[in-house]
Simulated assay, not measured.
Amino acid sequence: MPAKNPFIDFAQDATAPALDLVAIVPDDNNDLVTVVRKIRVGVGGDVKLVTSQGTTVTFQNCYSGEELGPFFVARILANGTTATGLVGYC
């Protein structure tokens, strides 16, 4: 039986808590299954991403445990991303 969620009917906007989390595998050719609004870095390094509007940005020298965002991310690129253990908040 799934856990009861007393917040299910609350308005969901860009600043609301994430409804779900997704493990991110960087990929140069494919978008994420779901656009995410924040990224947690497991092991530090660079994160190269493409926003939902198509802008490519590299966040250099991210530290372990750092959270990037909020902004809408469509893809994490493999070429240019050295950080690992990435988790997306959606």
Rank of each mutant, 00 (worst) to 15 (best):
K4H: 06
K4A: 13
K4T: 14
P6I: 11
P6E: 07
F7D: 05
F7M: 04
D9E: 09
D9I: 09
D9G: 11
F10T: 06
F10C: 09
F10K: 15
F10H: 13
A11P: 01
Q12I: 15
A14Y: 06
T15S: 08
T15W: 15
A16R: 09
A16F: 04
A16S: 15
P17I: 02
P17Q: 09
A18D: 09
L19Y: 09
L19Q: 09
L21G: 14
L21Y: 11
V22I: 15
A23P: 02
A23E: 14
A23L: 06
I24H: 01
D27P: 04
D27I: 01
D28A: 00
N30E: 12
N30K: 11
D31W: 02
V35G: 15
V35Y: 15
V35D: 15
R37C: 02
K38N: 12
K38D: 08
I39F: 09
R40Y: 09
R40V: 09
R40H: 05
R40T: 03
V43F: 14
V43E: 15
G44V: 08
G44C: 10
G45T: 14
G45D: 07
D46F: 04
D46H: 08
D46I: 00
D46V: 00
D46M: 02
D46C: 02
V47R: 03
V47L: 05
V47G: 00
K48P: 06
K48Q: 13
K48A: 08
K48C: 10
L49R: 01
L49M: 11
L49C: 02
L49S: 01
L49V: 12
T51D: 08
T51A: 08
S52R: 05
Q53N: 06
G54T: 06
G54S: 06
T55F: 11
T56P: 02
T56F: 01
T56I: 02
T56Q: 07
T56E: 09
V57K: 05
V57R: 07
V57Y: 11
T58V: 07
T58A: 05
F59V: 10
F59S: 00
Q60F: 07
Q60R: 07
C62T: 02
C62P: 01
Y63W: 12
G65D: 10
E66Y: 07
E66H: 07
E67S: 13
L68M: 13
G69A: 02
G69W: 12
G69N: 02
G69H: 03
P70D: 01
P70C: 00
P70S: 00
F71Y: 07
F71D: 03
F72S: 10
V73M: 06
A78G: 07
N79W: 01
N79P: 03
G80P: 08
G80I: 06
G80R: 12
G80V: 10
G80D: 04
T81V: 08
T82L: 13
T82W: 14
G85S: 05
G85V: 01
G85M: 07
G85T: 03
L86V: 03
G88P: 02
G88K: 07
C90F: 12
